[in-house]
Design a protein around this nucleic acid. Structure first.
Lengths: 365, 365
DNA sequence: CTGTTAGCGCATTCAA
DNA sequence: TTGAATGCGCTAACAG
């Protein structure tokens, strides 16, 4: 059965296609009676305008692209939900793309999305320079940067107060008496993580604690979850820009093997937190008795862990929502102001202990 | 800057648009030299065929729809990832839609997707009868049912062995000596959950344990996570077909208040598991000493809980992948056979104890 | 207040 | 081996 089109409706209502189009889009006045006839025909024939034909005519598709690292990462799933909810309200569709932090995949997706004529793009960039992204920006497709900056791109950035959150977390550990505080973080290309390291540094400096670079671990975050996904999936494919970074699991082991190992650890994302917890377990390191832990990003399950996790909570859902609202404004050529960072919050649970409760390790006064 | 189109390329290469089209789609032979010239022009102009114009011409969009309950639910995020990875390999885009188990939202999405001319649909239906879904099926758009059956729709169903998994879980509890085993489950409209209850019943019957209907709790699963999402979001909007079911948190409380409360609990999805654990915590009920727990669906974080969770693991990623592969076959008019249920696996960790270790509750011999 | 008509960018039939 | 011409379904001038 062929798809019913605007011609069919027009014929049935005894009007022109222009009139049909106008009653549907409410784009010019139509006499009430004609209007009714058209609507009746639409109903009777169960007519749905083809978004794609409309797209060709108006050069607009009512769909936007969302490029993130991995929908499987709880941070991004909440963000994605925020984006989706917001756009859906206005009849927009969103196409999800997972880069796995692989700039080659990012590039490929950019190509596909552009070919699909998206009306706008929200992207958490991998951080490696992208000609294609530049060209898309030049093509005047509205772009909003999500969570991270992109080299060479001047688009509004929707993000949380990463520096401040890291500062709070570190300061909290310091107040508990910790002096040797390790930080586990990911690739430098991700601007967010850079900000978190900055916050960590600032807290230490303010407290007059000298910074030991050996305690700052940058690594490939992919060291958990192999158990749940088949290795032959695309999940852990060739992630080019990760290959040179040391594996986080190994890096963490080395940190814990240090003669004066840290008494506390600040882990800068939830992926790594999972891995860290596994590492603790394997080593029979008890948290917080043996080592304190605070991590970035909260989740439903964080309070149910052993121990319940002290975290820096970020407003993930709102992050997505904010980005979507902003992009919508840009698409509609409305005024907008550059967003200010969303506030984060330190949620204290039970994964940190006062230093005095620790085994007496060597501590810089 | 106007978008470069096939005309531009043709002009620059000194050929007709037909030729350009043919070299791009490899749809008829073109002399090597002409071919080269075209390719050069494509490169030089940075030409990307408009998928949408192509769609109008070929009546195909290279995009498929994925309707699930909630991308925020780890089960569905893994499934979604499987779907996305598979389709992306073949140049398809996937549009995600979250129904929140609300049939009205489902209907709205169906409308949007149809208007968008999707080439195929993967759907985990809410389970309430949908005229629109029927009509879409009649319009001969390929559909695959994901995880759940839909009333009145005869499309292939990709699912796991729910009945068997529930049977295994229940049987395991029985072998540990439990006799009063509760089951916490959701809406009857979701066929998957019905299968799980069946497996539970079969295990009990085989063991000669009479079934106490008071131990079978059906409820609205939405009793956790209010903390992370703002109440003004769409998340917990008007979910029409849930409103009459009792709140799971309350239902669980009632179950635990029973004079001879169950010594073990089988919770049929991860959402409810989270809620259950919170309820235990609130009541200071220790698991597994006070009560054993096995739940459906595994996750990265399940082993890190207190206690590490014994679960029925389902191959979530493969579930999505399988559905996608199948839909692809249907779209390409290839032969396919109806999928058989994917196997599940009981993962024993530490949330179940032998009954003898329990406080001496009244037990039916 | 409504109809005619020319594209939007591409695939494809027919002709050469 | 290639071109010219038509149409996919809709919108938006322009005309009346």
């Amino acid at each position: 059965m062929a798809r019913v089109n605007i011609r069919d409706v027009a014929d049935r209502a005894g009007v022109s296609t222009a009139t049909v189009s106008h009653v549907i889009n409410q784009t010019r006045f139509v006499r009430e009676e004609t209007r009714r006839k058209v609507l009746e025909a639409v109903e009777a024939l169960n007519y749905h305008p083809s978004t794609i034909a409309r797209g060709l005519a108006t050069n607009t598709t009512q769909t936007i692209g969302l490029i993130i690292s991995d929908i499987t990462n709880p941070f991004f799933t909440a963000v994605a939900r925020g984006v989706e909810d917001e756009f859906n309200q206005f009849g927009y569709h969103t196409i999800f793309c997972n880069t796995d932090e692989d700039s080659a995949r990012e590039d490929e997706y950019l190509r596909l999305l552009f070919a699909h004529q998206i009306d706008g793009l929200i992207i958490a960039p991998t951080g490696v320079h992208s000609d294609r992204l530049l060209r898309i920006a030049e093509a005047e497709i509205p772009i909003v940067l999500l969570d991270r900056a992109a080299p060479g791109i001047t688009a509004p950035l929707v993000h949380v107060d990463n520096e401040g959150g890291a500062y709070q977390a570190t300061r909290y550990l310091i107040e508990l008496g910790h002096r040797r505080i390790g930080i586990l973080t990911g690739m430098e290309t991700i601007s967010t993580l850079g900000m978190r390291v900055s916050g960590y540094r600032r807290a230490l400096q303010e407290a007059g604690i000298s910074i030991d670079e050996a305690l700052i671990i940058r690594a490939d975050p992919r060291f958990h979850k192999n158990q749940l996904y088949p290795s032959d999936s695309l999940l852990w494919g060739s992630i080019t820009n990760l290959q040179m970074t040391p594996n986080a699991f190994l890096a963490l082991q080395k940190l814990l093997d240090l003669p004066d190992r840290p008494t506390a650890l600040f882990v800068t994302n939830n992926q790594m937190t999972l891995g860290t917890l596994h590492a603790f377990k394997e080593r029979k390191l008890h948290c917080p008795e043996d080592i304190s832990l605070v991590s970035f990003d909260d989740h439903d399950w964080a309070p149910l862990f052993a121990p319940p996790l002290t975290v820096v909570r970020q407003p993930t859902y709102q992050l997505g929502q904010t980005a979507a609202k902003l992009l919508l404004k840009m698409i509609n050529h409305q005024e907008f102001e550059n967003p200010s960072p969303l506030p984060v919050e330190l949620i204290i649970r039970e994964s940190c202990a006062k230093l005095s409760a620790h085994a007496p390790l060597k501590v810089a006064a």
